[in-house]
Write a protein that binds this DNA or RNA. Structure first.
Lengths: 246, 246
DNA sequence: CGAAGGCTTGATAGACCTCAAACACAGTGG
DNA sequence: CCACTGTGTTTGAGGTCTATCAAGCCTTCG
């Protein structure tokens, strides 16, 4: 039962990385799909699936992850409202990773057929979506850089800076504070660290007066020093207005 | 001075991940651009550039990399003939990373205008290119997984498996052997390891009878055990015929 | 109140890094 | 032809970062 849903998060997300014409905005607003709610830690799409719909996150948080044969988990990406975490399934049949709700979340499922019709009829909308997947890839590159060459503290700081900047670009921060609804184990799976070491790194960052983090809410206490510790440069996010974040 | 060049590597690459119609093949073959040669370690595109052409690797090897403010380098991707390593510059103005020739290489530079004209006139060719960038992103995800959750040996084994599988898909292997023209320092920068540790890990793999590696040529001695050590599953490469590699 | 999940702490072990030096090899110039 | 240089590989020793194991604590929730 396709229905219209609130496209504001999607519009805000697309506008954060692209200038939209009125025509494009109307085209995007006309998208419809099936809205569904997910509980915390519930899988949305699983590795190996071949979905015929793509998922637009409307509210909550999602993350993408892989599980290795030996059982270890690696979180690949964190998604916020307006993201289409599995847009790539439009062109890559088999999912090479899974997608799950991090907290109770709602999402709209848009049939691939509808997306194809839309991008066929409006090539500039195709560019919007293509570009969105390219920014996604740019974020992966930044994660590779941090995983490969940063200390635990630098890497965690980078994650904090990135999520803050992305949320701020879509208007979901509250001053220097934002919701980061992940356990220390989940942060470890995102950063390639053990839970214990995440805990100690968080303590160090608190001790340094860089951040506060409790009950899933993160507060930045010293943006300048945090950014320096993370060696954070928001260029890779390809935001229209990168300085809106500072 | 645009010229026609050998599109065979590109065609082979695209055919490794997609079924091409004759019409699409002809469209791709009609692409022209400027051919240029690069010396080893020469930069092709630099972080911060806003190129108006995209680079198609015809012969040799290239790699993409970032340099952190503290001077550390992280290699993000390894490219083989037929790849278009900076296709994303078609839609993302500023390069968020650099591209360099790993060994003496030749590449064709295709103006963005020509690419845009091509994909406007043939939407299915647009899908080809979009899909290519999505596979690129899938490879980044696999690197994140290995960086975050694998030991040095597992990660190095994964890299060996990946490059082997990709080269084999475009017909550039020689039995169980292929050119991998990287120094141990470069491998370290790709794997997030020190040169010394790469050296010791290579020795361990040689001692285990998994691989041979000298003078830039890699030979796989025991594919089954190598694959197991790497926890390698080629699904993420989204090849049309994933089993051609085994 | 008990159970479960998440957070915190301590102790120990292991993987990997850094520094330093020796070795191998190819290219260069006298 | 041979020193000389530069780059890449190899080896050793010591140190640091992070993982693992194990336990205790705290909060939430049924």
């Amino acid at each position: 039962m396709p229905e219209l849903f609130d496209t504001a998060p999607l519009i805000r997300k697309l506008e954060s990385i692209f200038v939209l014409s009125d025509e494009e905005k109307h085209a995007v607003q006309s998208i419809n799909g099936t809205v569904k709610a997910f509980g915390a830690h519930e899988d949305v799409v699983r590795e190996g699936d071949a979905p015929s719909v793509s998922c637009l996150l409307l509210d909550g948080f999602m993350h993408r992850y892989k599980v290795l044969p030996d059982g270890k988990r690696q979180i690949l990406a964190i998604h916020t409202p307006g993201d289409i975490p599995d847009l790539q399934s439009l062109l890559l049949r088999r999912q090479d990773h899974s997608l799950a709700a991090s907290v109770p979340s709602t999402a709209a499922f848009i049939p691939h057929e509808a997306l194809r019709a839309l991008i066929r009829s409006r090539p500039t909308v195709a560019d919007l979506f293509w570009r969105d997947t390219l920014v996604d890839a740019a974020i992966f590159r930044a994660w590779i850089e941090s995983l490969g060459r940063c200390s635990a503290l630098g890497h965690l700081a980078h994650l904090v800076c990135e999520v803050y900047t992305r949320l701020r670009a879509v208007g979901l921060t509250n001053g220097c504070s934002y919701g980061l609804p992940f356990t220390q184990t989940e942060l470890g799976d995102a950063l390639g660290l053990s839970t214990v070491h995440v805990n100690r790194t968080l303590q160090e960052m608190r001790g340094e007066g860089l951040i506060e983090f409790q009950h899933g809410r993160l507060t930045i206490l010293d943006w300048t020093r945090l950014k320096a510790a993370a060696q954070f440069d928001p260029g890779y996010l390809h935001l229209r207005d990168p300085h809106a974040s500072v």
